[in-house]
Design a protein around this nucleic acid. Structure first.
Lengths: 200, 200
DNA sequence: TGTACATCAGTGAACGCGCGTTCACTGATGTAC
DNA sequence: TGTACATCAGTGAACGCGCGTTCACTGATGTAC
């Protein structure tokens, strides 16, 4: 699309190449993971010369770091919106709503998601660490509200378990091991994880 | 290690190169994922000429398929051992034991694990499909026993939720987002996922 | 036990290719006056 | 409004490198007799 734009207009300057490069990267990561492509491939898809992406992002690590940081911004915004939507309901219901928002984010931004939760792709910088920490705080605070409401349990354990549940579901669904289902079924799945302790 | 063997003995034939190549591959995948290495790198680490791995596995996809198949064999055996260990206990307790076995496998075989639950790395063959299906059946049957014991719930939903929980925990721990804990704490985490429905 | 021969495992040189990086450049934009 | 100039965005040729693959080969092993 970016290529068509440029071919059509014949512009020398792209207009917003960083944006186009990030979009292409997100697509490529969603298609084949965070490794199986080159900066030249990204340049080709964006319709620019092979050296252009490096002009903005330096190298592959810089590109992935920017994508991951943008991903956390999006996830944090999704959490904030879910909190507004579920205001006034019980802590447990708000926690469930947050989990559903997480799964919706993973489904809608598979490229960002894949890069966000993998270590070793890049060295984190301040912007990345700040927004990632901010997002995790929302998760822990939600768990704390649930524990306070229930009057029992450890908030950190609940936060980890909740995160693991949605993270695992997102991963298995993205890789095709689990069929996608509609939101009502999805909520039921999150809730039925609890059958296990009922029996012990 | 393989290299030292060969240097020490000066043998022309390796002895068991397929085994050595798989071990090196598992190490490399655990270190840097299923993409960031080459067949030449594997040959170097195994101490053989660069063309030797292809002699046995064809290409990277064939190597990854063999590794994934071996991984499912190991996981299936771990499930079987857990079933024997927990024989006679309640269905819920046996299900928990299976989850703990899953997490132990992921911790002990990170290279295999990474390759097993990712699609698109290779085209599955009969051996892979057979053992993967066999392993999944153990998971679903365990969930069915729990549902039968509890007299309520949907076995597929429980199977998916349980799998997602341990898969997510394995992934987040492997990537360093969650600190490893000892087995007692780990069991508690799996159980406390249930605080959520208690509040709704 | 010895010999001949087929088969298999691994070698190493050669190839073409796509990659990341560099760098002098050109085109476009924005700002000062 | 026009002009000059600095800055920025993107180009394209060139480079060296590691890669997968090919292929004629050599060393080792196993089996038939």
């Amino acid at each position: 699309m970016a290529r068509l734009d440029r071919v059509a207009t014949g512009r020398y300057h792209h207009g917003d190449l960083p944006r186009a490069v990030l979009d292409v990267t997100a697509d490529l990561v969603a298609e084949s993971g965070p490794f199986s492509w080159s900066l030249r491939e990204i340049a080709r898809r964006a319709g620019v010369s092979h050296a252009a992406p490096a002009h903005h992002f330096g190298d592959k690590a810089g590109l992935l770091r920017t994508l991951a940081t943008e991903g956390f911004e999006l996830l944090d915004a999704a959490f904030a919106a879910a909190e507004v939507d579920a205001a006034g309901r019980s802590a447990a219901e708000r926690h469930l709503a947050q989990g559903m928002a997480y799964l919706a984010f993973a489904r809608e931004h598979p490229g960002h998601y894949d890069v966000m939760f993998r270590r070793g792709l890049f060295e984190p910088d301040d912007a990345y660490l700040e927004v990632a920490a901010r997002t995790f705080v929302r998760l822990v605070e939600s768990a704390e509200r649930v524990v306070a409401e229930a009057g029992a349990g450890d908030a950190d354990d609940l936060a980890v378990a909740s995160w693991a549940l949605v993270h695992g579901l997102a991963g298995l669904t993205a890789e095709g091991f689990v069929e996608p289902v509609d939101d009502a079924d999805l909520e039921r799945r999150l809730l039925w994880a609890c059958l296990l302790p009922a029996g012990s």
